[in-house]
């Protein structure tokens, strides 16, 4: 099983070394690993990682808060639903990264543009998933709450909101990889640090080792976020 992986890694080491593949364009595994550690020691990788992580976390948090709040509005106020449903339906498939030039125009090339755009990206799946969960609450649950004396406020606070949290967490899980993509791509298209920026700079300077190191880090981040959200889901939804 691990045999195939070992074979691939072996080829990675041997082919560039033997010159079968241009070692400038495709450095051997050992060089890549060495670069990785070198960057780690120098702190450049860590620094860029922190920047990207910070932007991702803030964007996810903002997108989550906005998504859940807006979902509550969409479900309880008909005019809001009427006004925004066609817009969300129309703009959902569009890659939000196409908005980078607009956000840069509005907010400059600093953190703000990147985080806001990423937050918008997270907003969509979280809002939709939460709203779907809220709308999917069984009639019997509604009626039980009413016959127990719940007024409108109590209904939203004690029934609709808790019943929608699983939907919100599912939305968060979907949002995480999308948000990471937007943060990284926006870092790739402008200055301001972060792993995406490190990637483009390295590519301009033909530093392959650095590129691989960044990609490896991105992979770890992707896995890390997914695991974290799964854990968070278990912690928040103790009843599942």
């Amino acid at each position: 099983m691990a045999l195939a992986l070992a074979a691939v890694l072996a080829l990675w080491e041997l082919l560039p070394g033997a010159g079968a593949v241009n070692p400038v364009l495709f450095p051997p595994l050992s060089k890549v690993v060495a670069t990785f550690f070198e960057l780690m020691v120098k702190g450049a990788l860590a620094k860029a990682t922190v920047v990207t992580l910070y932007r991702t976390v803030v964007a996810l948090a903002a997108g989550f808060a906005a998504g859940v709040a807006f979902a509550a509005l969409m479900v309880s106020l008909r005019p809001v639903r009427w006004l925004f449903e066609p817009l969300f339906s129309l703009t959902y498939p569009m890659p939000k990264i196409a908005l980078i030039p607009i956000f840069v125009l509005w907010f400059g090339i600093g953190d703000m543009a990147k985080v806001l755009l990423a937050a918008l990206t997270a907003f969509y799946p979280i809002m939709l998933s939460t709203a779907a969960a809220a709308r999917g609450i069984r009639q019997s649950l509604h009626w039980s709450a009413q016959s127990l004396g719940a007024g409108r406020a109590a209904m939203i606070w004690k029934v609709v909101l808790p019943a929608s949290i699983p939907g919100a967490m599912t939305g968060l899980q979907v949002a995480a990889p999308l948000t990471i993509i937007v943060v990284v791509v926006s870092e790739m298209t402008s200055s301001g640090g972060g792993l995406g920026n490190m990637l483009t700079v390295a590519s301009r300077n033909f530093e392959m080792g650095v590129q691989f190191a960044v990609l490896f880090t991105l992979m770890l981040i992707g896995v890390g976020f997914d695991r974290l959200i799964v854990l968070a889901r278990k912690a928040v939804l103790r009843w599942e």
């Binding site: 990471i180 993509i181 790739m188 990637l199 483009t200 960044v214 990609l215």
Partner: peptide
């Protein structure tokens, strides 16, 4: 055979691979 090779590719944001492939 293929799982260990494909699995690490999933979590990578694919647009990040573009500079590499342009190279």
């Amino acid at each position: 055979c293929l799982n260990p090779i494909l699995a690490p590719l999933y979590p990578i944001p694919k647009p990040a691979l573009v500079p590499l492939f342009v190279m």
